[in-house]
Design a protein around this nucleic acid. Structure first.
Lengths: 202, 202
DNA sequence: AAATTTAATAAACAGTGTTCAGAAAATAAA
DNA sequence: TTTATTTTCTGAACACTGTTTATTAAATTT
Protein backbone atom coordinates (compact mmCIF):
# COMPACT_ATOMS: atom_id res chain seq x y z
CA UNK A 1 0.00 0.00 0.00
CA UNK A 2 1.58 3.22 -1.21
CA UNK A 3 -0.90 5.21 0.79
CA UNK A 4 0.24 3.87 4.17
CA UNK A 5 3.82 4.52 3.13
CA UNK A 6 3.01 8.13 2.37
CA UNK A 7 1.12 8.45 5.64
CA UNK A 8 4.10 7.06 7.53
CA UNK A 9 6.35 9.49 5.66
CA UNK A 10 4.06 12.40 6.48
CA UNK A 11 4.04 11.35 10.10
CA UNK A 12 7.82 11.39 10.20
CA UNK A 13 7.86 14.78 8.48
CA UNK A 14 5.49 16.12 11.08
CA UNK A 15 7.68 14.75 13.87
CA UNK A 16 10.66 16.43 12.26
CA UNK A 17 8.78 19.70 11.90
CA UNK A 18 7.96 19.61 15.60
CA UNK A 19 11.39 18.55 16.81
CA UNK A 20 13.23 21.06 14.64
CA UNK A 21 11.09 23.88 16.03
CA UNK A 22 11.56 22.54 19.55
CA UNK A 23 15.32 22.31 19.20
CA UNK A 24 15.60 25.81 17.78
CA UNK A 25 13.57 27.22 20.65
CA UNK A 26 15.29 25.13 23.33
CA UNK A 27 18.63 26.49 22.11
CA UNK A 28 17.45 30.06 21.83
CA UNK A 29 15.26 30.30 24.92
CA UNK A 30 16.12 27.28 26.99
CA UNK A 31 13.93 24.27 27.74
CA UNK A 32 12.04 25.75 30.67
CA UNK A 33 11.21 28.97 28.89
CA UNK A 34 9.86 27.16 25.85
CA UNK A 35 6.22 26.10 26.14
CA UNK A 36 4.28 23.63 24.07
CA UNK A 37 2.09 26.54 23.01
CA UNK A 38 5.17 28.46 21.80
CA UNK A 39 6.24 25.50 19.70
CA UNK A 40 2.72 25.03 18.38
CA UNK A 41 2.55 28.70 17.39
CA UNK A 42 5.84 28.45 15.55
CA UNK A 43 4.77 25.52 13.40
CA UNK A 44 1.22 26.90 13.07
CA UNK A 45 -0.57 23.97 14.63
CA UNK A 46 -2.62 23.71 17.77
CA UNK A 47 -0.87 22.62 20.99
CA UNK A 48 -2.94 19.45 21.12
CA UNK A 49 -1.52 18.31 17.78
CA UNK A 50 1.96 18.02 19.25
CA UNK A 51 0.61 15.41 21.64
CA UNK A 52 -0.42 13.26 18.72
CA UNK A 53 3.24 12.90 17.75
CA UNK A 54 5.01 13.10 21.09
CA UNK A 55 3.85 11.74 24.43
CA UNK A 56 4.85 14.78 26.46
CA UNK A 57 7.33 17.64 26.71
CA UNK A 58 9.96 15.31 28.18
CA UNK A 59 9.85 13.20 25.04
CA UNK A 60 10.69 16.32 23.02
CA UNK A 61 13.64 16.93 25.33
CA UNK A 62 14.71 13.32 25.00
CA UNK A 63 14.63 13.54 21.21
CA UNK A 64 16.54 16.82 21.13
CA UNK A 65 19.12 15.39 23.51
CA UNK A 66 19.63 12.51 21.14
CA UNK A 67 20.37 14.88 18.27
CA UNK A 68 22.59 16.98 20.49
CA UNK A 69 24.66 13.97 21.55
CA UNK A 70 25.13 13.19 17.91
CA UNK A 71 26.34 16.74 17.30
CA UNK A 72 28.82 16.35 20.13
CA UNK A 73 30.04 13.08 18.66
CA UNK A 74 30.44 14.76 15.28
CA UNK A 75 32.45 17.52 16.93
CA UNK A 76 34.74 14.83 18.37
CA UNK A 77 35.20 13.23 14.96
CA UNK A 78 35.91 16.64 13.46
CA UNK A 79 38.34 17.84 16.15
CA UNK A 80 40.21 14.70 17.12
CA UNK A 81 42.51 14.39 14.14
CA UNK A 82 45.91 13.48 15.57
CA UNK A 83 47.42 10.03 15.26
CA UNK A 84 49.32 10.10 18.52
CA UNK A 85 47.02 8.56 21.17
CA UNK A 86 47.94 11.05 23.86
CA UNK A 87 47.46 13.97 21.55
CA UNK A 88 44.07 12.56 20.63
CA UNK A 89 43.02 12.60 24.27
CA UNK A 90 44.07 16.22 24.55
CA UNK A 91 42.13 17.15 21.44
CA UNK A 92 39.12 15.28 22.76
CA UNK A 93 38.98 17.12 26.05
CA UNK A 94 39.44 20.44 24.33
CA UNK A 95 36.72 19.55 21.86
CA UNK A 96 34.36 18.72 24.71
CA UNK A 97 35.02 21.89 26.66
CA UNK A 98 34.82 23.92 23.48
CA UNK A 99 31.47 22.40 22.62
CA UNK A 100 30.12 23.33 26.03
CA UNK A 101 31.47 26.82 25.80
CA UNK A 102 30.13 27.45 22.31
CA UNK A 103 26.73 25.74 22.65
CA UNK A 104 25.70 26.58 26.17
CA UNK A 105 21.97 25.96 26.00
CA UNK A 106 22.53 22.76 24.09
CA UNK A 107 25.11 21.61 26.65
CA UNK A 108 22.74 22.61 29.42
CA UNK A 109 19.95 20.43 28.16
CA UNK A 110 22.32 17.55 27.45
CA UNK A 111 24.22 17.39 30.73
CA UNK A 112 22.75 19.74 33.31
CA UNK A 113 18.98 19.62 33.00
CA UNK A 114 17.20 17.10 35.16
CA UNK A 115 16.82 13.98 33.06
CA UNK A 116 13.45 13.36 31.39
CA UNK A 117 12.21 10.60 33.66
CA UNK A 118 9.25 9.47 31.60
CA UNK A 119 11.41 8.89 28.54
CA UNK A 120 14.61 7.57 30.10
CA UNK A 121 14.88 5.21 33.07
CA UNK A 122 13.16 2.22 31.50
CA UNK A 123 16.63 0.81 30.80
CA UNK A 124 16.18 2.95 27.73
CA UNK A 125 19.03 5.46 28.09
CA UNK A 126 20.07 8.36 25.88
CA UNK A 127 20.50 7.78 22.16
CA UNK A 128 23.93 8.66 20.75
CA UNK A 129 25.25 9.29 24.24
CA UNK A 130 27.00 5.93 24.29
CA UNK A 131 28.79 6.75 21.05
CA UNK A 132 30.20 9.95 22.49
CA UNK A 133 31.19 8.27 25.74
CA UNK A 134 32.75 5.34 23.93
CA UNK A 135 34.81 7.82 21.94
CA UNK A 136 36.25 8.90 25.27
CA UNK A 137 36.86 5.42 26.63
CA UNK A 138 38.38 4.25 23.35
CA UNK A 139 40.69 7.24 23.20
CA UNK A 140 41.56 6.72 26.84
CA UNK A 141 42.30 3.03 26.42
CA UNK A 142 44.76 3.76 23.63
CA UNK A 143 46.90 6.04 25.76
CA UNK A 144 46.32 4.76 29.26
CA UNK A 145 49.88 3.34 29.39
CA UNK A 146 51.24 6.84 28.88
CA UNK A 147 49.18 8.18 31.74
CA UNK A 148 49.72 8.08 35.47
CA UNK A 149 46.24 6.70 36.05
CA UNK A 150 46.03 3.12 37.22
CA UNK A 151 42.60 2.47 35.82
CA UNK A 152 41.18 3.52 32.45
CA UNK A 153 37.59 3.70 33.66
CA UNK A 154 38.49 6.02 36.49
CA UNK A 155 40.74 8.00 34.18
CA UNK A 156 37.83 8.54 31.78
CA UNK A 157 35.50 9.53 34.57
CA UNK A 158 38.11 11.88 35.94
CA UNK A 159 38.65 13.65 32.63
CA UNK A 160 34.94 13.91 31.98
CA UNK A 161 34.24 15.23 35.47
CA UNK A 162 36.87 17.91 35.15
CA UNK A 163 35.53 19.08 31.80
CA UNK A 164 31.92 18.90 32.87
CA UNK A 165 32.67 20.55 36.18
CA UNK A 166 34.33 23.52 34.54
CA UNK A 167 31.65 24.02 31.92
CA UNK A 168 28.69 23.53 34.22
CA UNK A 169 30.09 25.82 36.93
CA UNK A 170 30.50 28.38 34.19
CA UNK A 171 27.11 27.92 32.56
CA UNK A 172 25.28 27.99 35.88
CA UNK A 173 27.39 30.95 36.96
CA UNK A 174 28.80 29.41 40.14
CA UNK A 175 32.29 30.08 38.86
CA UNK A 176 31.61 33.75 39.62
CA UNK A 177 32.81 33.15 43.17
CA UNK A 178 36.32 32.65 41.78
CA UNK A 179 36.16 36.25 40.53
CA UNK A 180 37.64 35.61 37.14
CA UNK A 181 37.17 38.58 34.79
CA UNK A 182 34.79 37.81 31.92
CA UNK A 183 37.39 38.40 29.25
CA UNK A 184 39.77 35.93 30.88
CA UNK A 185 37.21 33.20 31.52
CA UNK A 186 37.89 31.29 28.36
CA UNK A 187 41.65 31.41 28.94
CA UNK A 188 41.38 30.27 32.55
CA UNK A 189 39.19 27.33 31.59
CA UNK A 190 41.59 26.33 28.83
CA UNK A 191 44.53 26.71 31.18
CA UNK A 192 42.84 24.51 33.77
CA UNK A 193 42.25 21.85 31.17
CA UNK A 194 45.85 22.05 29.98
CA UNK A 195 47.20 21.93 33.51
CA UNK A 196 45.16 18.81 34.17
CA UNK A 197 46.38 17.20 30.98
CA UNK A 198 49.94 18.00 31.98
CA UNK A 199 49.56 16.43 35.40
CA UNK A 200 48.09 13.15 34.27
CA UNK A 201 50.92 12.43 31.86
CA UNK A 202 53.71 10.12 32.87
CA UNK B 1 9.68 52.02 71.26
CA UNK B 2 9.19 48.44 72.48
CA UNK B 3 6.34 47.95 70.09
CA UNK B 4 8.38 48.51 66.93
CA UNK B 5 11.03 46.16 68.34
CA UNK B 6 8.46 43.46 68.86
CA UNK B 7 7.03 44.06 65.39
CA UNK B 8 10.49 43.76 63.89
CA UNK B 9 11.04 40.57 65.91
CA UNK B 10 7.73 39.14 64.72
CA UNK B 11 8.62 40.02 61.16
CA UNK B 12 11.89 38.11 61.45
CA UNK B 13 10.07 35.18 63.04
CA UNK B 14 7.65 35.13 60.15
CA UNK B 15 10.52 35.22 57.66
CA UNK B 16 12.11 32.31 59.50
CA UNK B 17 8.84 30.38 59.54
CA UNK B 18 8.58 30.79 55.79
CA UNK B 19 12.19 30.02 54.98
CA UNK B 20 12.32 26.95 57.22
CA UNK B 21 9.26 25.54 55.53
CA UNK B 22 10.68 26.42 52.13
CA UNK B 23 14.02 24.78 52.88
CA UNK B 24 12.41 21.62 54.18
CA UNK B 25 10.27 21.33 51.08
CA UNK B 26 13.07 22.25 48.67
CA UNK B 27 15.15 19.46 50.17
CA UNK B 28 12.36 16.92 50.22
CA UNK B 29 10.68 17.72 46.89
CA UNK B 30 13.13 19.92 45.03
CA UNK B 31 12.80 23.59 44.17
CA UNK B 32 10.77 23.17 40.99
CA UNK B 33 8.29 20.81 42.55
CA UNK B 34 7.66 23.10 45.52
CA UNK B 35 5.06 25.80 44.87
CA UNK B 36 4.37 28.95 46.82
CA UNK B 37 0.94 27.50 47.55
CA UNK B 38 2.54 24.35 48.99
CA UNK B 39 4.67 26.42 51.31
CA UNK B 40 1.69 28.59 52.27
CA UNK B 41 -0.33 25.49 53.08
CA UNK B 42 2.43 24.11 55.25
CA UNK B 43 2.69 27.22 57.40
CA UNK B 44 -1.08 27.76 57.31
CA UNK B 45 -1.03 31.17 55.68
CA UNK B 46 -2.34 32.35 52.35
CA UNK B 47 0.08 32.39 49.38
CA UNK B 48 -0.14 36.18 49.15
CA UNK B 49 1.24 36.53 52.68
CA UNK B 50 4.57 35.07 51.59
CA UNK B 51 4.93 37.96 49.17
CA UNK B 52 4.75 40.41 52.08
CA UNK B 53 7.99 38.91 53.39
CA UNK B 54 9.81 37.81 50.25
CA UNK B 55 9.85 39.50 46.87
CA UNK B 56 9.44 36.33 44.85
CA UNK B 57 10.23 32.63 44.74
CA UNK B 58 13.79 33.34 43.66
CA UNK B 59 14.39 35.27 46.84
CA UNK B 60 13.37 32.18 48.82
CA UNK B 61 15.87 30.18 46.81
CA UNK B 62 18.54 32.79 47.37
CA UNK B 63 17.94 32.73 51.12
CA UNK B 64 17.98 28.92 51.29
CA UNK B 65 21.17 28.86 49.23
CA UNK B 66 22.77 31.17 51.78
CA UNK B 67 21.94 28.79 54.61
CA UNK B 68 23.07 25.83 52.57
CA UNK B 69 26.45 27.41 51.82
CA UNK B 70 26.84 27.97 55.54
CA UNK B 71 26.08 24.29 56.15
CA UNK B 72 28.73 23.34 53.61
CA UNK B 73 31.22 25.63 55.31
CA UNK B 74 30.38 24.05 58.66
CA UNK B 75 30.93 20.63 57.15
CA UNK B 76 34.39 21.81 56.05
CA UNK B 77 35.20 23.05 59.54
CA UNK B 78 33.97 19.78 61.01
CA UNK B 79 35.76 17.47 58.58
CA UNK B 80 39.04 19.26 57.89
CA UNK B 81 40.85 18.49 61.12
CA UNK B 82 44.39 17.57 60.11
CA UNK B 83 47.35 19.84 60.66
CA UNK B 84 49.30 18.74 57.64
CA UNK B 85 48.38 21.13 54.79
CA UNK B 86 48.26 18.43 52.15
CA UNK B 87 46.14 16.20 54.31
CA UNK B 88 43.81 19.12 54.89
CA UNK B 89 43.28 19.50 51.16
CA UNK B 90 42.41 15.84 50.88
CA UNK B 91 39.95 16.08 53.74
CA UNK B 92 38.42 19.14 52.15
CA UNK B 93 37.75 17.51 48.81
CA UNK B 94 36.32 14.43 50.47
CA UNK B 95 34.15 16.62 52.67
CA UNK B 96 32.83 18.44 49.59
CA UNK B 97 32.05 15.30 47.65
CA UNK B 98 30.55 13.71 50.71
CA UNK B 99 28.29 16.70 51.24
CA UNK B 100 27.05 16.48 47.69
CA UNK B 101 26.46 12.78 47.94
CA UNK B 102 24.61 12.98 51.24
CA UNK B 103 22.57 16.12 50.58
CA UNK B 104 21.65 15.82 46.95
CA UNK B 105 18.73 18.19 46.72
CA UNK B 106 20.57 20.76 48.78
CA UNK B 107 23.63 20.42 46.57
CA UNK B 108 21.41 20.64 43.53
CA UNK B 109 19.93 23.96 44.53
CA UNK B 110 23.32 25.32 45.59
CA UNK B 111 25.39 24.42 42.54
CA UNK B 112 23.25 23.04 39.74
CA UNK B 113 20.01 25.01 39.66
CA UNK B 114 19.93 28.02 37.38
CA UNK B 115 20.91 30.98 39.54
CA UNK B 116 18.13 33.23 40.85
CA UNK B 117 18.68 36.20 38.59
CA UNK B 118 16.44 38.66 40.36
CA UNK B 119 18.26 38.18 43.63
CA UNK B 120 21.85 37.72 42.45
CA UNK B 121 23.57 39.57 39.61
CA UNK B 122 23.41 43.08 41.10
CA UNK B 123 27.03 42.57 42.20
CA UNK B 124 25.25 41.03 45.14
CA UNK B 125 26.49 37.44 45.00
CA UNK B 126 25.71 34.45 47.20
CA UNK B 127 25.95 34.82 50.95
CA UNK B 128 28.35 32.40 52.70
CA UNK B 129 29.55 31.13 49.35
CA UNK B 130 32.72 33.18 49.59
CA UNK B 131 33.53 31.68 52.98
CA UNK B 132 33.31 28.16 51.60
CA UNK B 133 35.35 29.05 48.52
CA UNK B 134 37.94 30.89 50.59
CA UNK B 135 38.28 27.77 52.70
CA UNK B 136 39.36 26.02 49.52
CA UNK B 137 41.75 28.72 48.34
CA UNK B 138 43.30 29.07 51.81
CA UNK B 139 43.77 25.34 52.11
CA UNK B 140 45.18 25.27 48.62
CA UNK B 141 47.61 28.12 49.22
CA UNK B 142 49.06 26.35 52.22
CA UNK B 143 50.02 23.25 50.29
CA UNK B 144 50.56 24.56 46.79
CA UNK B 145 54.32 24.02 47.10
CA UNK B 146 53.70 20.34 47.66
CA UNK B 147 51.59 20.08 44.55
CA UNK B 148 52.51 19.80 40.89
CA UNK B 149 50.25 22.69 39.97
CA UNK B 150 51.97 25.88 38.91
CA UNK B 151 49.17 28.19 39.93
CA UNK B 152 47.05 28.07 43.09
CA UNK B 153 43.99 29.64 41.49
CA UNK B 154 43.95 27.10 38.71
CA UNK B 155 44.65 24.34 41.19
CA UNK B 156 41.62 25.37 43.25
CA UNK B 157 39.42 25.58 40.19
CA UNK B 158 40.68 22.22 39.04
CA UNK B 159 39.91 20.51 42.34
CA UNK B 160 36.51 22.12 42.58
CA UNK B 161 35.62 21.22 39.00
CA UNK B 162 36.54 17.62 39.52
CA UNK B 163 34.44 17.34 42.67
CA UNK B 164 31.53 19.24 41.22
CA UNK B 165 31.72 17.35 37.96
CA UNK B 166 31.52 14.00 39.69
CA UNK B 167 28.66 14.95 41.98
CA UNK B 168 26.60 16.76 39.37
CA UNK B 169 26.98 14.02 36.78
CA UNK B 170 25.79 11.64 39.48
CA UNK B 171 22.90 13.78 40.72
CA UNK B 172 21.65 14.51 37.23
CA UNK B 173 22.13 10.86 36.30
CA UNK B 174 24.44 11.44 33.34
CA UNK B 175 27.00 9.17 34.98
CA UNK B 176 24.68 6.29 34.04
CA UNK B 177 26.39 6.12 30.66
CA UNK B 178 29.51 4.86 32.44
CA UNK B 179 27.46 1.85 33.55
CA UNK B 180 28.66 1.76 37.10
CA UNK B 181 26.54 -0.52 39.30
CA UNK B 182 24.57 1.42 41.91
CA UNK B 183 26.21 -0.29 44.83
CA UNK B 184 29.67 0.63 43.56
CA UNK B 185 28.87 4.24 42.71
CA UNK B 186 30.08 5.64 45.98
CA UNK B 187 33.32 3.68 45.80
CA UNK B 188 34.04 4.72 42.22
CA UNK B 189 33.50 8.38 43.04
CA UNK B 190 35.76 8.14 46.07
CA UNK B 191 38.36 6.27 44.03
CA UNK B 192 38.27 8.96 41.35
CA UNK B 193 38.79 11.64 43.95
CA UNK B 194 41.67 9.72 45.52
CA UNK B 195 43.27 9.07 42.17
CA UNK B 196 43.12 12.76 41.37
CA UNK B 197 44.63 13.65 44.72
CA UNK B 198 47.41 11.17 44.11
CA UNK B 199 48.24 12.61 40.69
CA UNK B 200 48.46 16.23 41.77
CA UNK B 201 50.99 15.53 44.51
CA UNK B 202 54.66 16.12 43.89
C1' DA C 1 -14.62 54.63 71.30
C1' DA C 2 -13.15 56.30 66.90
C1' DA C 3 -9.51 56.91 63.52
C1' DT C 4 -5.52 55.19 61.53
C1' DT C 5 -2.04 52.17 60.40
C1' DT C 6 -0.51 47.37 59.67
C1' DA C 7 -1.26 42.56 58.34
C1' DA C 8 -3.62 38.90 55.89
C1' DT C 9 -6.36 37.09 52.33
C1' DA C 10 -9.77 36.02 48.47
C1' DA C 11 -9.95 36.53 43.92
C1' DA C 12 -8.15 37.35 39.77
C1' DC C 13 -4.55 37.38 35.82
C1' DA C 14 -1.74 35.31 32.67
C1' DG C 15 0.79 31.60 32.08
C1' DT C 16 1.97 26.25 32.19
C1' DG C 17 1.44 20.86 30.66
C1' DT C 18 -2.03 17.93 29.33
C1' DT C 19 -6.60 15.68 28.06
C1' DC C 20 -10.78 14.95 25.50
C1' DA C 21 -15.04 15.62 22.97
C1' DG C 22 -16.15 17.09 18.74
C1' DA C 23 -15.12 19.20 14.10
C1' DA C 24 -12.68 18.87 9.74
C1' DA C 25 -10.27 16.37 6.33
C1' DA C 26 -8.85 12.27 3.98
C1' DT C 27 -9.70 7.67 2.61
C1' DA C 28 -12.67 3.54 1.66
C1' DA C 29 -16.87 1.50 0.35
C1' DA C 30 -21.31 1.80 -2.00
C1' DT D 1 -20.38 10.30 -7.23
C1' DT D 2 -22.27 9.77 -2.89
C1' DT D 3 -22.17 7.73 1.48
C1' DA D 4 -19.63 5.58 5.34
C1' DT D 5 -15.54 5.15 7.87
C1' DT D 6 -11.26 6.17 9.43
C1' DT D 7 -7.64 9.51 10.40
C1' DT D 8 -6.14 14.06 11.70
C1' DC D 9 -6.73 18.25 14.02
C1' DT D 10 -8.40 21.66 17.36
C1' DG D 11 -11.28 24.45 20.97
C1' DA D 12 -12.17 24.22 25.32
C1' DA D 13 -11.43 22.67 29.55
C1' DC D 14 -8.73 20.94 33.88
C1' DA D 15 -5.59 21.48 37.35
C1' DC D 16 -1.73 23.55 38.14
C1' DT D 17 1.99 27.62 38.42
C1' DG D 18 3.99 32.61 40.14
C1' DT D 19 2.30 36.96 41.16
C1' DT D 20 -0.71 41.24 41.96
C1' DT D 21 -4.50 43.85 43.80
C1' DA D 22 -8.65 45.26 46.05
C1' DT D 23 -10.76 44.20 50.22
C1' DT D 24 -11.22 42.54 54.81
C1' DA D 25 -9.47 41.80 59.52
C1' DA D 26 -6.50 42.96 63.21
C1' DA D 27 -3.57 45.79 65.85
C1' DT D 28 -2.14 50.25 67.26
C1' DT D 29 -2.66 55.22 67.98
C1' DT D 30 -5.43 59.11 68.85
Amino acid sequence: MGITDRKEREKQEMRKLIIDAAMEMFIKEGFDRTSIRNIADKIEYSPATIYLYYKDKDELLYEVQGQAFLELYNAFVRDVTATDPLERLEQLLHSYVNFGFEHRDLYDLMFILRSPMNAVDEGNDWPNCDEAYNFLTDTMNKCIDQLRYENAQIAALSIWSLGHGLISLFIRERIKVAQIPDDQMRNVITATVNEHLRLIKK
